[in-house]
């Protein structure tokens, strides 16, 4: 008698019970996100290690000149904004990017809230705003990367030891081996950390579009709940969260 499953009785081993009062999909999304946290942490921790093992710039911030000999001051590197060539606007553009991502997080959580009310039109509206925010962020990042790779008008004069001789040449912009703003490792970390984050934003935009499409075609309404919006929402907020940390550890300190 005890071995037979009874209908309408919740049995821990036969399903029907949600561990931690979260659905399977949501729980798995949380555990995926914690593993993704480790990946991003590994990148940021490696950045911390290399930064602390490299010489720091000593002297007044105002007198800062870029050199591969010491770690740069981020606000001196990221000081350009589109359409204002030559204007020194430290961290303004990255501030705008941060605002865009936080705002798209707000529209995402509004979409989740609309899903709870089964308000299909509102979910569609807020998903579109979220997609727009994500796409705008990616566009900003493309511009930022381009500016970083192309470099400034004057570049940086670098003295290098090549085959026993000191050679002087001017470096414009940065790639994985050369960097006008500081040590090559600084550019490497910039490309890897913001690139890995940008890849997350890109896949987030694709997932958001998928959710929007399935909302618009009425799949979730037919299913009776908008839990998928919540699950993708968790991922999207995580991407925003990572940017908050990247903003602090790469651009501010």
């Amino acid at each position: 008698m005890a071995a037979t499953a009874q209908p309408n009785v919740k049995n821990v081993w036969l399903g029907g019970v949600e561990p931690m009062k979260a659905s399977y999909g949501k729980l798995m999304m949380w555990f995926f996100l914690i593993s993704d946290t480790f990946t991003f942490s590994a990148l940021l921790v490696a950045y911390g290690l290399v930064r602390f093992s490299s010489p720091a710039y000593v002297g007044q911030v105002a007198d800062f000149v870029a050199s591969p000999a010491y770690w740069p001051i981020p606000e001196k590197v990221f000081d350009a904004i589109p359409f204002f060539h030559g204007l020194h606007a430290p961290l303004v553009f990255v501030g705008i990017m941060t605002f865009i991502l936080i705002f798209s997080s707000v529209t995402m959580v509004l979409a989740v809230e609309a899903g709870h009310r089964m308000d299909r039109a509102a979910v569609e509206k807020y998903m579109l705003w979220t997609i727009l925010g994500g796409a705008t962020f990616l566009g900003c990042q493309a511009w930022e990367w381009t500016h970083f790779i192309v470099g400034t008008d004057s570049g940086t004069v670098v003295k290098e030891l090549v085959d026993g001789d000191w050679v002087t040449h001017t470096v414009f912009g940065a790639n994985l081996t050369q960097n006008q703003y500081g040590p090559p490792a600084f550019a490497d970390f910039f490309f890897f950390i913001t690139g890995f984050h940008g890849t997350h934003v890109l896949s987030g935009v694709i997932l958001n579009f998928l959710v929007f499409y399935r909302t618009a075609t009425g799949l979730y309404e037919k299913r009776g709940h908008y839990e998928m919006v919540e699950k993708i929402g968790l991922y999207w907020h995580f991407v925003d969260l990572v940017w908050v940390f990247v903003f602090t550890f790469f651009y501010l300190v």
């Binding site: 946290t37 921790v45 911390g48 290690l49 602390f52 093992s53």
Partner: peptide, 23 residues
Amino acid sequence: LLIPCIFVVWLLIALMREGGSIF
């Protein structure tokens, strides 16, 4: 979710000190 993050903080502090030592 929070407890695993404590280890991340530990790793961060440990490797920043390690970086200072390498320097």
